[in-house]
Simulated assay, not measured.
Amino acid sequence: MIKKLQNSDLEVAEKMQVIFQASYAIEAALLKAIDFPPLKRSLENYKKSDTHFYGYFKEEVLAAVIEIIPGESHIHIRSLVVHPDFFRQGIARKLMLFTLENYHSTLFVVETGVDNGPASQLYEKLGFVEVLQWDTDFGIRKVKFELRIEEK
């Protein structure tokens, strides 16, 4: 089940942070990152963020979170994290489909590390197209994907 998360609630923010930390630790290893800024995100940052967070619950346990920044020109999927205990169960795909169905835009944008194969494969299977690669100041090569949807 997917529910909107009230990230301003301390208990909710703490649960979210646990999932972000666990998932990003795996991604940092995949990317061979020594300095990985997402792992430095503070609890206060989650609590005060005005982005939209949705959680995927499996048997009432928060298993994954998607973070969305709605904009006038596009929807930016800022983060998509699944707790390692719930990897390879199709949860990330369900959160992405939920976003594509519930946010109305002609353009969706998402970024990940170039070496994050599972994320890139998911985005490509959903129709996203790679549009840019670049090197970050913290030594990670990133890739940007876009999905354009024709207006009906």
Rank of each mutant, 00 (worst) to 15 (best):
E14G: 03
I34A: 11
L10D: 08
M1L: 08
S42L: 06
V109P: 00
P38R: 00
L147Q: 08
V109K: 10
P118G: 04
Y54G: 03
I75S: 02
V129R: 10
I68K: 00
G90C: 09
E27S: 00
H104P: 02
E101G: 03
F98R: 06
D135Y: 06
D50V: 11
K125Y: 04
M96C: 11
V131K: 15
I91S: 09
K15W: 04
K48E: 14
I77E: 01
K125E: 10
V65P: 01
T51H: 08
E11S: 15
V110W: 12
F98C: 04
L126I: 03
P118Q: 06
Q6F: 12
I26E: 15
F138I: 10
E111W: 07
I68L: 00
S49Y: 03
E124L: 07
P70K: 01
R141S: 04
D85F: 09
L132D: 12
L5V: 11
F20A: 09
N102L: 10
I2D: 00
R148T: 09
A63D: 13
V18N: 03
I68C: 00
A63R: 11
V131N: 06
E59Y: 09
L122N: 04
P37R: 05
Y123K: 05
K58F: 07
T136P: 08
L126E: 03
A13Q: 03
T106W: 12
L97A: 07
A92W: 03
P38N: 00
E72I: 12
P37S: 12
A22I: 02
K125L: 03
P37T: 09
L30E: 14
T51M: 12
A28M: 05
G139V: 05
I91N: 09
D137I: 08
I149N: 06
I66M: 03
F98H: 13
S42I: 01
F108S: 02
D115T: 12
F20V: 07
L100G: 05
D137V: 08
Q6Y: 12
M96H: 07
V129L: 05
G55L: 06
E60H: 09
R88K: 14
D135E: 15
L80W: 07
A33Y: 01
L147I: 05
F108H: 02
I66E: 01
Y54W: 13
E146Q: 15
A119S: 15
E101K: 12
L80T: 11
H83K: 10
N116C: 05
E67G: 02
R141F: 01
A33Q: 03
G127D: 09
S42D: 02
Q133R: 15
K32M: 07
E111R: 15
K142Y: 02
K152S: 13
I68A: 00
G55P: 03
D50Q: 14
H74F: 12
K40G: 08
Q89L: 14
M96Q: 04
L10S: 10
I149S: 10
I2W: 02
E72W: 09
D50C: 08
